[in-house]
Design a protein around this nucleic acid. Structure first.
Lengths: 199, 199
DNA sequence: GAAAAAAAATGAAGTAGTTTAAGACTTTTA
DNA sequence: TAAAAGTCTTAAACTACTTCATTTTTTTTC
């Protein structure tokens, strides 16, 4: 018996099913461990100082994950859109206060899993160890690449790389936020963009 | 019956046992899937263009993992010493040619697991999905942090961060290699070090 | 243990990216 | 729909870092 799932649940099941196969019963069980969350544009999903109680899967919208340096300048570590996972894994795992803010840049909808349900998930459906092993492995590969590019490419090269890699994200965010991701000032971002467009 | 293991095997079993519990039989099975490798100082464990056939655990020595940019300038992505894991996970997983070199900076000894044995390991001892899930999760946390620091800190701040975080590595490597890791020229590294020492 | 090779230090001139400030344009809010 | 707030552009002066060239020091090699 295959039950019809609502859209957001279908999305997360499809995402998980890329790496592991679930029975209908396991799908129902998994979905029962998730919490639906809505965040309006400009609202915070999480703020620095809080403990990250959930890890999130985005079913709609766009969010930015960032820290503030001692001068209050934001440094954006990721933009998360539909079909992405986000959160502060360090705080989620250690239960120490987070240094990150997560703010919606569009009205967004997410599915969250709490720390308790995350542990329960591994007990009830051990295959999820495999799912997360592969998910983290793939994330690790792209973060290793990004941390290399951060030190080896110029700002202009990083911008071109971002545009090429995320053509679907680049037009959904402000130049200012993109500057915060690339690691430069909005003024210099503006110069780079007009230069690259002229080329 | 608890068998006595040789030193290198004891090290890797201790490493794995931080996250999962293994029976004596499982330990023997695991060890049987590993290959011992020795690399002399200045020798390559792996070179760009090759497919990464193994992931490695270091039992002795020190190695640097790096790429060369189009001008032939090395960018070091990690230094790996005893009790660390290393390799090129992207190439190991996709079987595409690697862009990385791994070179020993001291005479080194490693235990490697081949791609076939890595898959076999999950079939034979599914708990290893959990081990790698946790290992990758922890690595991910530190790479996320590093990729943020790469864009938000000055070279001097990154140097101080490295020295504080890896006091046991900083004196084992050359200033030139450290420059390649921090993402600056050896000349500027030299200036930073003499400045920081004067403070 | 001498010669060669590589690493480190220093300095002068150049470039990538920042800072500050001000005006134009766009989006949000009441 | 007007005012306010935020974003984008441009430019001049500044700083972090690079480049190139030379000398000194350390490490490697035979």
């Amino acid at each position: 018996m295959v039950l019809k799932l609502e859209h957001s649940h279908q999305l997360i099941i499809d995402n998980v099913s890329r790496f592991i196969d679930l029975t209908e019963l396991e799908k129902q069980k998994y979905i029962s461990l998730l919490t639906e969350v809505k965040v309006k544009k400009k609202a915070f999903l999480m703020q620095a100082g809080e403990i990250a109680r959930y890890e999130y899967f985005i079913t709609k919208g766009c969010l930015k994950v960032y820290t503030l340096n001692e001068d209050g300048v934001p440094h954006i570590s990721m933009f998360a859109v539909e079909d992405y996972w986000t959160g502060d894994m360090a705080s989620f795992m250690t239960k120490e206060p987070s240094r990150y803010f997560i703010k919606a840049t569009e009205d967004s909808e997410l599915l969250g899993i709490s720390r308790a349900n995350y542990e329960l998930l591994f007990q009830e459906i051990p295959k999820f160890e495999r799912f997360y092993r592969i998910l983290y492995q793939k994330s690790l590969i792209s973060y290793i690449r990004r941390s290399n590019q951060g030190i080896s490419l110029t700002a202009e090269e990083r911008y071109i790389e971002f545009k090429t890699k995320y053509p679907n994200i680049v037009h959904r965010i402000t130049q200012k936020d993109l500057a915060g991701y690339i690691g430069i000032t909005p003024e210099f971002m503006s110069k780079i963009i007009s230069k690259v467009n002229r080329m």
